Computed example of a mutant assay.
Amino acid sequence: MFTPPYPIITPRLVLRPFTEADLDDLHAFQSLPEVTRYLYWDARTREETKAALDRKIAGVSLAADGDALSVAAALTGGGPVIGDLTLFLRSREHRQGEIGFVFNPAYQGLGLATEAAREVLRIGFEGVGLHRIHGNCDARNIPSARLMERLGMRLEARLVENEFFAGAWSDELVYAMLAREWRASPAASAGHRA
């Protein structure tokens, strides 16, 4: 079983487990239709956000296939939670993981999602010892695709009209990074402060 050495401190963020006190911050962006437009769930009510938060609070370690590590990204200095990141353990045997992220749009365009997601990749490669981490997004979700590109993930596939999503056929993009690509990246050598 792997549990990250929290808190993980970056220049502008603190990455940590979710707590019950994060409900208002999480609901502030999970309740926005523009945030959930390309997700598999609709804008959440406060009760739905609370149920999701309860699952996130339980997601503190990775041990078995299908486990999800939930990471809150909060601004340093006691600032609000602005991001919700997940690292899924897809296969222990093949050392495969998947990254996911949802951020408050009020903080987009500042590089904060890249800063946080980079550390989740570090957790996967350096902490868990994964060989490959992938991320998927709807092809219309340009900000998510660009974030994965900024992370150094490469486009592996474009699945054409593979899902009937929100009333229309949509393409899905699959990005991935291998452990050797992570080790060769500038992000790997940059490290983080604890």
Score class of each variant (00 low, 15 high):
residue 3 T to A: 13
residue 4 P to T: 03
residue 6 Y to W: 15
residue 8 I to E: 01
residue 9 I to A: 13
residue 10 T to A: 12
residue 10 T to P: 10
residue 12 R to M: 04
residue 19 T to F: 07
residue 19 T to A: 13
residue 27 H to Q: 13
residue 28 A to P: 11
residue 33 P to N: 10
residue 34 E to R: 15
residue 37 R to K: 14
residue 42 D to N: 12
residue 42 D to V: 01
residue 44 R to F: 00
residue 44 R to Y: 00
residue 44 R to T: 14
residue 49 T to G: 01
residue 54 D to A: 15
residue 54 D to S: 14
residue 54 D to G: 10
residue 60 V to M: 07
residue 62 L to H: 02
residue 64 A to Q: 15
residue 68 A to R: 12
residue 74 A to E: 06
residue 74 A to V: 07
residue 75 L to W: 09
residue 76 T to V: 11
residue 79 G to H: 11
residue 81 V to K: 08
residue 85 L to A: 02
residue 89 L to I: 03
residue 105 P to Y: 06
residue 108 Q to V: 00
residue 109 G to V: 02
residue 110 L to K: 15
residue 111 G to F: 04
residue 113 A to I: 06
residue 115 E to A: 12
residue 119 E to W: 12
residue 121 L to C: 05
residue 122 R to A: 15
residue 122 R to F: 05
residue 124 G to S: 07
residue 124 G to R: 09
residue 127 G to W: 10
residue 134 H to T: 02
residue 136 N to Q: 12
residue 137 C to L: 03
residue 137 C to P: 02
residue 138 D to E: 12
residue 147 L to F: 01
residue 147 L to V: 04
residue 153 M to C: 05
residue 158 R to N: 05
residue 160 V to K: 13
residue 163 E to F: 13
residue 168 A to R: 15
residue 174 V to P: 03
residue 175 Y to T: 03
residue 177 M to H: 03
residue 180 R to N: 06
residue 180 R to A: 10
residue 189 S to L: 14
residue 190 A to N: 04
residue 192 H to I: 12
residue 193 R to D: 09
